[in-house]
Design a binder for these strands. Structure first.
Length: 660
DNA sequence: GTAGGGTTAG
């Protein structure tokens, strides 16, 4: 088994009120509204590029510059004496270069300005720093800053902002004490940027200190500072503090709401993100593409397909255009929430697809067992000239490993060199996984030993998973030891090793591993499944008898069990690794959480409706086999999302081809 | 002249 990060199922929605959705229109994919939304080419322009205010307003001068004055011919007109320069002209030229992100033009204007008699104008010099920062050249901004003899608070703030906006948090942070030493007083602009830097730097303690500074300078209640502040706490994972800041803001706006929603989305707290989304609407704030992006991302992480569809419909209804960024989160949501078909529709309608869109689609294919399609799409992506990055290769390699495409996986790993993408440890994990699943355990071990970088717990974990699959106890134990050395707190490898021993009948070794876990305080997450029925999400744990419908559920499963046994299902008690007799093992096996969820869904959904179940661990082989039979005898499509991938069961088969 | 919120993997 490859060690993978779970699809954030740790905090599922427990209940979503249906009433919350009543005012929304029902979702249908191919409505004309949808079509309009997708085909509106303007939607893809993220509000930039338009020419700002004219540089020259004088009609005679306009004629002299062929009615279309570029910055360069304006400078030429100045040189020829046709225009009397003043700071305002330079200001306009710089504004335009900033707006259009034209660095070269900005440099020429800067040089020209330094040759003018206004070269010491503080106002324009600050504009120049801002221009360089917005054009992404922090080296130019820093140089211009260093060359200034006189600096004011705006000068410092412009540079701090430049670093903060260009992911150089520590440099932004370092400027702040220097600014204070100059005796300059920071304002709300300074704090808004500084807090952004602190949020990115994950520097909890120092962040709190700056919060105190905001209060001291009377800026903490400003909506920009407040939004930045609550965003900072949200990035630290401290939603309690983020909420306190939010509640304290007398003037809230879309941005402060979005920061809060995004905070919950990042934490995987989908239910809270939804609550805030509705609260925001009730308060009269319009959801923006930032909002939708966070909400779709929440739906993706908790696998909430129905809610995701509602929000998609809401977005269309509200007239919010599907810009590129949101399109990517939307397609990712459909793929992660179980509908690869809808993800594909969104992808096919994207006017502009970037590397993120392609990566999301590749991941979708990989997780839905469509390895061949992933490869075709990857080839298509290369053909149309989208540059693959390290994530792209990870997606393709994962698609290969999930589908047993050994040769293809090795081929694409080699292809990384041609695209100058350095393989990282995650890429090596997929190759170990690929070799291991194919049963080439010795080759996988040799591969690890020959790796040019130090193997991590995930690398050994992939070998351990393969050993479990192919029942190689000796190598499994060796791999497990390596994992324990590198990551002693992960319960997964402990459970795997214990199961390897137990399935070989080595009960005392299995018990020893369990004891080792207990002694070192490693806790195994209890296995749970969730199923969504009419906008309510129901949770089940194995052998749970606390559900109000427990008797019906039990009877239902007994009925199903008898039916599927008639057509060939044989319980595989290898997956109940308890020291109990055969009959009792079978009884335990019957009530794995996904079977309870499935029985419940069969009781509470109309015949023929697709059933979607989510799991917080990977499915066991017995449940996998049982659900295949259920899909046949009950004539249902059943989709199970586990931590690793999707299983689409239909008519006795699973999309994973029993390879997972 | 200077400010805050959003995507893909493991």
């Amino acid at each position: 088994m490859m060690k993978t990060r779970p699809l954030s199922l740790s905090t599922p929605i427990t209940h979503i009120s249906k009433a919350a959705f009543l005012h929304l229109i029902p979702f249908q994919f191919a409505t004309s509204a949808t079509e309009r939304s997708f085909s509106d080419s303007d939607a893809w322009e993220e509000g930039e590029e338009g020419d700002p205010s004219p540089i020259i307003q004088d009609h005679d001068l306009l004629r002299k510059s062929n009615n279309s004055p570029t910055s360069l011919n304006v400078l030429d007109l100045i040189d020829r004496g046709s225009i009397e320069p003043d700071p305002e002209i330079y200001n306009r030229l710089l504004k335009r270069a900033t707006h259009m992100k034209k660095l070269k033009e900005g440099r020429i204007i800067h040089a020209h300005f330094l040759g003018s008699k206004f070269k010491s104008d503080l106002f324009i010099l600050n504009t120049i720093i801002n221009m360089y920062a917005k054009c992404g050249s922090l080296s130019d901004a820093q140089k211009a800053f260093d060359e200034m003899r006189l600096k004011d608070m705006v000068t410092w703030t412009a540079l701090i902002t430049g670093y903060a906006q260009n992911d150089r948090a520590e440099e932004a942070i370092a400027l702040f004490p220097q600014m204070l030493r100059q005796g300059l007083k920071p304002n709300q602009f300074t704090f808004a940027s500084l807090l952004k830097a602190f949020g990115a730097a994950q520097s909890n303690e120092r962040g709190r200190q700056v919060h105190a500074f905001c209060v001291k300078y009377g800026c903490d209640l400003n909506v920009y500072v407040g939004s930045s502040l609550l965003d900072m706490y949200a990035r630290y994972g401290d939603m309690k503090e983020a909420n306190l800041v939010f509640d304290g803001l007398s003037c809230k706006n879309e941005v402060s709401c979005n920061a809060l929603i995004a905070g919950y989305a990042r934490k995987g707290e989908g239910e809270e993100a939804f609550k805030q989304f509705w609260k925001m609407q009730r308060a009269g704030f319009e959801a923006t593409h930032f909002t939708y992006s966070s909400v779709f991302s929440s739906c993706a992480s908790i696998g909430a397909l129905e809610q995701g569809k509602w929000v998609h419909a809401h977005m269309i209804k509200s007239g919010c255009k599907l810009i590129a960024f949101v399109g990517n989160t939307l397609l990712d949501m459909y793929a992660k929430a179980g509908s690869i078909e809808d993800a594909r529709k969104v992808f096919d309608r994207l006017d502009k697809s970037d590397v993120v869109s392609w990566n999301s689609m590749l991941t979708g294919c990989a997780q839905h067992g469509r390895g061949k399609e992933a490869i075709q799409r990857f080839e298509e992506m290369l053909r149309i000239g989208i540059e693959p990055n390290e994530i792209t290769f990870l997606c393709v390699l994962t698609a290969c490993s999930h589908n047993g495409l050994l040769n293809e996986g090795q081929f694409y790993f080699e292809l990384m060199k041609r695209y100058n993408v350095e393989p990282k440890v995650e890429h090596y994990v997929t190759i170990v996984d690929l070799l291991g699943r194919a049963g080439l355990l010795d080759q996988a071990q040799r591969y690890i030993n020959d790796m040019p970088i130090e193997p991590t717990a995930a690398v050994w974990g992939a070998l351990l998973g393969a050993c479990r699959m192919h029942r190689n106890m000796e190598l499994g134990a060796y791999a497990a030891e390596r994992v324990f050395e590198l990551d002693p707190h992960d319960s997964g490898p402990h459970v795997l090793l214990s199961n390897i021993y137990a399935s070989a009948g080595r009960w005392s070794d299995a018990a020893r591993v369990r004891k080792m876990m207990k002694d070192s305080g490693v806790k195994k997450e209890p296995a749970c499944s969730w199923v969504e029925i009419e906008n309510s999400v129901h949770m089940f744990v194995a052998n749970d008898d606390s559900h109000p419908q427990r008797e019906e559920i039990q009877k239902m499963w007994e009925k199903i069990s008898a039916k599927i046994k008639e057509v060939g299902y044989v319980p595989d008690t290898n997956y109940v690794l308890l020291f109990v007799d055969q009959q009792e093992r079978e009884a335990k096996l019957q009530y794995h959480s996904e079977k309870l969820a499935l029985a419940f869904a069969l009781l509470n959904t109309p015949p023929g409706a697709t059933i979607r179940i989510k799991k917080n661990i990977r499915m066991c082989g017995d449940c996998h086999s049982a659900i295949k039979f259920v899909s046949m005898v009950m004539e249902r499509e059943i989709v199970v999302r586990d931590t690793n991938r999707f299983h689409h069961f239909s008519n006795g088969f699973c999309s994973c081809g029993d390879y997972w």
